[in-house]
Design a protein around this nucleic acid. Structure first.
Lengths: 192, 192
DNA sequence: GTCTATACGGTGATAGAC
DNA sequence: GTCTATCACCGTATAGAC
């Protein structure tokens, strides 16, 4: 049972993931939810309020789905696969890019609070990845794992964008496989 | 000596690279160039016309700067470095993301002709990279090099986005270094 | 909570004078 | 080529009735 407020956030999330912050209007949302735009303003006075709520919920959900960076029984490979899998699923279930990836590209137009929320999403992702990677110390020193974390994050975001553009999920598969292969290469290299 | 038409394209390119297709208006352009919006419409009747001209010129310039995928005296490493370097320079000289990376994220809102131009930019990039990588056959089979090409492209686009968001060029450095390291790892692995 | 009505600026685009 | 003037519409946002 979802109240109108939740429906509005749902609708806004889909629209931002399709066309970004400037790609939707209160009237669009109102039409989809089945109310008038003035009613949307009742729940979220300004567009900034709405976008911020969307960004924060998205981040919370994403981090929750991510879970612990290195749970019992996991391997670095399984963690990388888990991470990539979230992007795969996000694309498969919506055909759309990552919300924060979309918003990242609009920095200059973003209200400050929304911008900060996006930055904190990126930081959280890199930190999670760094922990997931850095715990294995075969050839993985801390500073290196930061760079590897950034790189995995970037390649998946880029892949989401290309996948949405061409309507082709193989971009994400390529990024996911490359992340895994790269890991194996490094481990082998270190143990040689 | 640049005529007004060129100035308009210059201005539009900067604006698209900042805020995307929906992030600029004819009046914005007019103000920057020092004419009225009606005069902009004289040069480019519709927004689609203008965006298409910007996208095509950007693609042409980028491919020209790229040059041959494997010129005399080049090594796979030098080609990867050359490719990454273009992104570095693009960011350093403008602090902005890649034009086609920006437009990729707005597929749903893009006029069809512009969308096709962006897709052709992406295709050309992957093809160039594939040739630059695929000519070295130490452990690089053709299908693998396609995946590696996609992955290098995606990670640099993602890095541009993150760099613009955080105003920090190290994202691009990380992506560039990872691309190089990955190549070395694969060669070493193949020759072991 | 939702509505109608409305304010008011921005937007792509055009007609016609110079 | 560039201008002024104007169009019809869309954007965020608000006031006040129900």
């Amino acid at each position: 049972m979802s109240d109108k407020r939740t429906e509005i956030i749902d609708s806004a999330e889909n629209m931002v993931r399709s066309g970004g912050y400037n790609g939707f209007s209160f009237r669009d949302i109102a039409d989809e939810v089945g109310i008038k735009s003035a009613s949307v303003h009742y729940h979220f006075p300004t567009k900034e309020d709405l976008a911020l709520a969307v960004a924060i919920r998205y981040k919370d959900n994403f981090l929750a789905a991510l879970g612990e960076p290195s749970p019992e029984g996991s391997t670095p490979e399984s963690r990388i696969a888990h991470y990539s899998g979230l992007f795969q699923t996000a694309f498969d279930t919506s055909g759309r890019a990552c919300l924060c990836g979309m918003l990242s590209n609009e920095v200059v137009l973003l209200p400050e609070s929304v911008k900060q929320a996006v930055i904190s999403f990126v930081d959280a992702n890199v930190e999670w990845l760094q922990q997931a990677l850095g715990l294995d110390d075969k050839g993985q020193t801390k500073p290196k794992s930061k760079e590897a974390a950034q790189w995995i994050y970037c390649s998946l975001q880029g892949a989401m964008s290309a996948a949405a553009l061409t309507n082709d999920r193989t971009w994400i598969e390529a990024a996911a496989r490359s992340a895994l292969e790269r890991f194996y290469d490094r481990v082998e290299k270190a143990s040689n």
